[in-house]
Amino acid sequence: MIIGLTGGIGSGKTAAANRFATAHGIHVVDADEKSRVVVQPGKPALQHIVDRFGDAILLEDGSLNRAALREQVFAAPAERQWLEQLLHPLIRDEIITDLKSASSPYALLVSPLLVESGQNALTKRVIVVDVPEAVQLSRTVQRDAVPEAQVRAIMQAQAQREERLRHAHDVLTNGSDLAALHAQVDALHQRYLQLLETQS
């Protein structure tokens, strides 16, 4: 069983996924990590990006300057669409390969664009980590040290909170502290094990 885990930027997806992995030994596949793999130096996708945006999009060591790219694509929707069309199929292939290697009772696919990219088609259930938008904003500005306007642009590009919740089978509410989030994850884990038992 593959379970999708999503939520807006700054919602606490990583904290939730880490709890599933460290406390319960669940195999976690992170779509953000896969998005880094497909643009490593020497990969064809990186060359396509350079051809489109120029060498200024690279760091001195020849790797992708993700901050510079993010600035470009979130300022121009057409550029973002071009980038997504290039990367989403490659990321999907990486995700599928990794999920096939899972040996835990179920696997977790963590993706900020789970619904928008169609990756939810790979999953049996969807967990949404939900927080008020004001919390998302303040957490991300603090964590990434980026301007509020850039965070708002990223939030606009992601599914709106109501849209995400519409796809949710399970919701983790993360407006409180880490202990509260962990308790919710632990309860969900037990529920998934019970679900698997009834299915077998």
Rank of each mutant, 00 (worst) to 15 (best):
I2Q: 02
I3T: 03
G4R: 02
L5W: 02
T6D: 07
G10W: 03
G12N: 08
G12D: 04
A16H: 04
A17Q: 02
N18S: 15
T22A: 15
H24F: 10
H24I: 06
G25K: 02
G25N: 08
I26G: 02
H27I: 02
H27T: 04
H27W: 08
V29Q: 02
V29A: 02
S35M: 06
V37P: 03
V38Q: 14
V39S: 08
Q40F: 07
P41Q: 09
L46T: 08
L46E: 05
I57S: 09
L58S: 10
E60I: 11
N65Y: 06
R70W: 05
E71Y: 10
Q72G: 00
A75K: 12
A75T: 11
P77G: 14
E79K: 09
R80G: 12
W82F: 14
E84H: 09
L86N: 09
P89L: 04
P89M: 10
P89A: 09
I91Y: 03
E94L: 09
E94A: 15
I95T: 02
L99C: 06
S103V: 13
S104I: 06
A107E: 04
S111G: 07
L113P: 10
L113M: 12
E116H: 08
S117G: 05
G118Q: 02
Q119F: 10
K124S: 11
V126M: 07
V129R: 01
A134P: 00
A134V: 06
R139W: 06
Q142K: 13
Q142F: 13
A145K: 12
E148Y: 01
Q150C: 07
V151I: 12
V151T: 04
V151W: 04
R152L: 13
A153K: 12
I154R: 08
M155P: 04
M155K: 05
Q156S: 14
R161W: 07
E162T: 14
R164M: 09
R166L: 10
H167G: 05
H167I: 03
T173N: 15
G175T: 11
G175F: 01
S176C: 12
D177G: 09
D177F: 04
L178K: 10
A183V: 05
Q184I: 07
V185G: 04
D186M: 05
D186G: 09
A187V: 10
L188E: 03
H189E: 11
R191G: 15
Y192K: 06
L193M: 13
L193P: 03
E197H: 13
Q199A: 15
S200H: 14
